[in-house]
Amino acid sequence: MNLEKILSISGKPGLYVLRVQTRSGFVAESLSDGKKITVNLKSNVSLLSEISIYTHDGEKPLVEIMEAIAAKHENGPAISHKADNDTLLAYLKEVLPTYDEERVYASDVKKILNWYNTLQAKGMVIEEKAEEATAEAVVEEAAPETEKPKAAKKVKE
């Protein structure tokens, strides 16, 4: 899952994709309706790739949490962000058992699930581990074929 150009803009609903940087800010495109907006440098903007969640062990990047959600639901939609707070916190406990209960709030979980479901609806949830496993499987299939002739040569000698 690549969150490098996905933005959350304070005061604007939904997620945006960074399109072009300008002298006074940048142009972003809404994922919900495709409209382009200009954002000045004074706006409070967060790149999803830079967001982390507090855990007892430190901080965990948002991309890893979204990958865990994707794995749990096989890249399908997660539970609704409109569920009650207890349900949301219990869900996060399933996905990220080590999250810090004192510093992570239900509103944070609502944002994460809302963002995940938005990205999933746009087909932007791709499990990188599955892609890596596919690439490794291709390499493993190719490797035995190249090794077999070497083994055959040793047998002939």
Score class of each variant (00 low, 15 high):
Met1His: 05
Asn2Gln: 14
Asn2Tyr: 13
Leu3Lys: 04
Leu3Arg: 04
Glu4Met: 10
Lys5Ala: 06
Ile6Gln: 01
Ile6Lys: 03
Leu7Asp: 00
Ile9Glu: 00
Ser10Arg: 10
Gly11Ile: 05
Gly11Arg: 05
Gly11Asp: 03
Lys12Glu: 14
Pro13Tyr: 08
Leu15Lys: 03
Tyr16Ala: 01
Tyr16Cys: 03
Arg19His: 08
Arg19Thr: 13
Gln21Asn: 13
Thr22Asn: 06
Arg23Ala: 15
Arg23Leu: 15
Ser24Met: 08
Gly25Ala: 07
Ser30His: 02
Leu31Asp: 00
Asp33Ala: 04
Asp33Met: 04
Gly34Arg: 08
Lys35Leu: 09
Lys36Ala: 12
Ile37Asn: 09
Thr38Met: 11
Val39Phe: 03
Val39Leu: 03
Asn40Asp: 14
Asn40Pro: 04
Leu41His: 12
Val45Lys: 00
Val45Leu: 06
Val45Gln: 02
Leu48Pro: 00
Leu48Val: 02
Leu48Ala: 00
Ser49Leu: 09
Glu50Asn: 12
Ile51Gln: 06
His56Leu: 15
Asp57Asn: 12
Gly58Glu: 05
Lys60Leu: 15
Leu62Thr: 01
Val63Met: 08
Glu64Cys: 08
Ile65Trp: 02
Glu67Thr: 14
Ile69Cys: 08
Ala70Arg: 00
Ala71Tyr: 05
Ala71Leu: 12
Ala71Glu: 11
His73Pro: 05
His73Leu: 09
His73Gly: 06
Glu74Asp: 14
Asn75Glu: 13
Pro77Glu: 09
Pro77His: 07
Ala78Pro: 01
Ser80Tyr: 02
His81Leu: 02
Lys82Met: 10
Lys82Asn: 10
Ala83Tyr: 05
Ala83His: 06
Asn85Gly: 06
Thr87His: 08
Thr87Tyr: 08
Thr87Arg: 10
Leu88His: 00
Tyr91Glu: 04
Tyr91Cys: 01
Lys93Tyr: 07
Lys93Pro: 03
Glu94Tyr: 08
Val95Gly: 04
Leu96Trp: 09
Thr98Lys: 12
Thr98Tyr: 06
Tyr99Ile: 04
Tyr99Gly: 03
Arg103Gly: 05
Arg103Cys: 07
Arg103Lys: 15
Val104His: 02
Asp108Ile: 10
Val109Gln: 01
Val109Glu: 01
Lys111Gly: 07
Lys111Ala: 07
Ile112Glu: 05
Leu113Phe: 04
Leu113Ala: 04
Asn114Lys: 13
Asn117Ser: 03
Thr118Lys: 05
Leu119Phe: 02
Leu119Ile: 03
Gln120Glu: 14
Gln120Thr: 06
Ile126Thr: 14
Ile126Cys: 10
Lys129Asn: 12
Lys129Thr: 14
Lys129Pro: 03
Glu131Ser: 07
Glu131Trp: 11
Glu132Pro: 00
Ala133Phe: 13
Thr134Ser: 11
Thr134Pro: 01
Thr134Cys: 07
Glu136Gly: 05
Val139Tyr: 15
Glu147Thr: 11
Lys148Cys: 07
Lys150Glu: 10
Ala152Phe: 10
Lys154Ser: 12
Val155Asn: 11
Lys156Pro: 02
Glu157Gly: 09
